[in-house]
Write a protein that binds this DNA or RNA. Structure first.
Lengths: 192, 192
DNA sequence: ACCTGAACACCGTTCAAGT
DNA sequence: ACCTGAACACCGTTCAAGT
């Protein structure tokens, strides 16, 4: 047994932080250290401060969500149906991991200082952009279409999570997500 | 000069809290008390705890936003244009009062315990519902239409505020809001 | 390098006490 | 009723010290 038993303390700290965040309880730096079995200031060897840890958590969560959405998309053979599958996956990820979703979007760390975080959410936009290419004859420019779809799905997800829409029932929220995707595509379809 | 110089300490505390929240700095119960010129535990005479104050702040903010949106709507003589005016007002309120918007949607107090808060955001849905009645021949049921529009506008607002959309430029965000409203209406329009 | 204990300046909340 | 000061159990962060 080493005195320095954590060859990978950084990873252990992140894991402890995920667990605490998921349980929505006592998400303090000192508690994270406790769960990782180290002293309350050992984390400062790996993170400049609490925000730094939260930024790492947010970035990591974005990667997990992207992987989850991509996996869901890959299961759908017909390209036009993939956008809806992605939207549903986005919703389901948020409903299953509300704390991750909150950390991703409602944390207060300075985004400008974390390019990896910015890159991660930019990837989300790129993914939507790519999925939209299976849809022809849209009468708005691709960037606007991308933002409309992402923002709408994100809005339903965020409000749904907080149970402000349809009592947050997952089935009803999925129907609402489907309706949003279909309505937006329909609305963007050119009449030509 | 009374010893109990605050005939209306509750209002003074809320005002101090608004100022602190707006400056995004040091939003602690003790600091709120300091700004109101009372001891650090005087607030407990008016609020059960910090969450209780935050819930009051959130509810109050909802009423302010509703009043702001209603005023914007009232200035528009043609009913079909009112929905877009409301959406823009929603966006502008959020951009001008990001701390209020955050308190309204991202606080962690138990909503179930604050029926006034629930009533306030239900009013938002009702308002959208009413504005949609100026639009005929929609091929989705009114409740779904209401939720789609609110969630989309809310999503653009939330992501835009965090500068995740178009660098958060107000002009571009307004264009995006307009596009969302128009696209959703277009998509919901029945072909008959 | 990596980790520790002690210390500092804060919190939210409670309680006994004052007017 | 309304407000206070002292106290409790916490924080995040820093620093000198240990291996």
């Amino acid at each position: 047994m080493d005195k320095y038993h954590h060859g990978n303390l950084r990873a252990a700290l992140l894991k402890a932080a995920f667990h605490l965040a998921a349980k929505m309880e006592n998400f303090t730096l000192r508690e994270v250290a406790r769960r990782a079995g180290v002293s309350h200031n050992a984390p400062y060897r790996h993170f400049r401060n609490k925000d730094d840890l939260i930024a790492a958590l947010a970035t990591e969560s974005f990667h997990q969500m992207l992987a989850f959405v991509r996996a869901a998309v890959a299961e759908v053979p017909t390209p036009p149906d993939r956008l809806r599958a992605a939207a549903r996956a986005y919703l389901h990820f948020a409903l299953k991991n509300p704390s991750r979703f909150n950390i991703m979007f409602h944390s207060t760390f300075d985004r400008h200082a974390y390019p990896d975080y910015v890159a991660a959410y930019t990837e989300s936009l790129v993914l939507v952009f790519e999925l939209l290419q299976a849809h022809e004859n849209l009468n708005v420019d691709p960037d606007t279409a991308t933002e409309l779809v992402w923002a709408s799905v994100h809005g339903i997800t965020g409000l749904g999570m907080a149970a402000r829409l349809r009592e947050g029932s997952p089935e009803n929220l999925e129907l609402l997500i489907d309706a949003a995707v279909q309505t937006l595509l329909q609305g963007m379809r050119s009449l030509s």
